[in-house]
């Protein structure tokens, strides 16, 4: 106690260290080669090309997205890319970095060599690194990414579906998908068959992972119709287990495994187990107590 008091009241200035300031670190120059395409350019110049930028890594954050931001703010404000959360949860900044699809915000800059950045492969480029997601999102819409219930008596917005903890745990590793399209656009089969006529096209790993997620959900009762929808030459069976999807998924999910299990479902080798819990519960506990006669009776007893 006394010691701390003494330290507190003593007015000795801290000892000055006669050390020179360390010399400023050598600039670490890093070259980025980035795919460029300007839709508003002159018709003759309306072509894609690769542009090179040099960034000092000492003045830049560790991730590829930081470098892109720096290039955009300091070198070339016309560089266009999607970004939002900068922490790998929104799925906006999916792009092809050094030949592998990943999210720019969670991919570290390699200090050696040149980093090449392309938009997601085999997609229509709107501008620079921004690609057209219309078809990808339409495929996701087509697998009906919502719970389908057979029973009509359900008070929408007022009730919750019941699900046991064990059944809920089965969904882990499937619900984390952020639809960044890294997996689908890394898949050669999706490149070749992803754009055939809409009801009969290869849906791609992302949509199939989500389809599987709703098929194994214990609260969903549209399993049969969902499987029937996939029962054609293209939707699932164009997958040849290349596993590029699992290899590049920024959320470490396994779309390849989901597709393999979907096939087991389609072949009838795997059946959906009976849900451990069913029915609904009032979403508002207060209302549930007031509206339900049983509970009031019980409380009286």
């Amino acid at each position: 106690m006394f010691c701390t008091m003494q330290r507190y009241f003593s007015k000795e200035p801290p000892k000055k260290e006669d050390k020179k300031e360390p010399p400023p670190p050598k600039p670490k120059m890093k070259r980025f080669k980035i795919y460029r395409f300007n839709p508003e350019g002159n018709q003759n110049v309306k072509k894609h090309y690769m542009q090179e930028y040099t960034v000092n890594l000492n003045e830049c954050g560790p991730m590829v997205l930081d470098a892109l931001e720096k290039i955009k703010s300091e070198h070339d404000c016309t560089l266009t890319f999607r970004r939002s959360c900068r922490e790998g949860i929104c799925g906006s900044c999916g792009m092809n970095i050094n030949g592998v699809n990943s999210l720019a915000c969670i991919t570290k800059i390699k200090t050696k060599g040149k980093t090449k950045i392309y938009p997601l492969p085999h997609m229509y480029v709107i501008k620079d690194l921004v690609v057209d997601f219309t078809r990808f999102l339409d495929q996701h819409r087509r697998i009906r990414p919502y719970l389908i219930k057979n029973e009509d008596k359900f008070d929408e917005g007022q009730e919750y579906f019941l699900q046991s903890i064990k059944d809920r745990e089965k969904l882990d590793g499937h619900i984390e998908c952020i639809l960044c399209a890294c997996c689908s656009t890394s898949c050669p089969e999706y490149w070749w068959h992803g754009h055939s006529n809409p009801p009969k096209d290869f849906l791609g790993p992302a949509a199939l992972l989500n389809a599987y997620r709703y098929i194994i959900d214990s609260r969903d009762s549209g399993t049969a119709s969902r499987l029937d929808q996939l029962r054609n030459y293209y939707s699932v069976y164009r997958c040849h287990q290349i596993n590029n999807c699992t290899n590049c998924c920024p959320k470490k999910l396994k779309p390849g495994k989901a597709i393999a299990h979907l096939r087991l479902f389609l072949a009838g080798l795997k059946k959906k187990p009976k849900p451990e819990m069913g029915g609904t519960i009032k979403s508002d506990p207060e209302k549930g107590v007031r509206g339900n006669d049983c509970t009031t009776k019980k409380s009286k007893c």
Binding site: N96, G99, K116, Y118, P121, H122, V131, S186, P188, W191
Partner: peptide, 11 residues
Amino acid sequence: RPQSPHLTIYK
């Protein structure tokens, strides 16, 4: 709109 490069650039 051009198609982004695929087979030639994927690692």
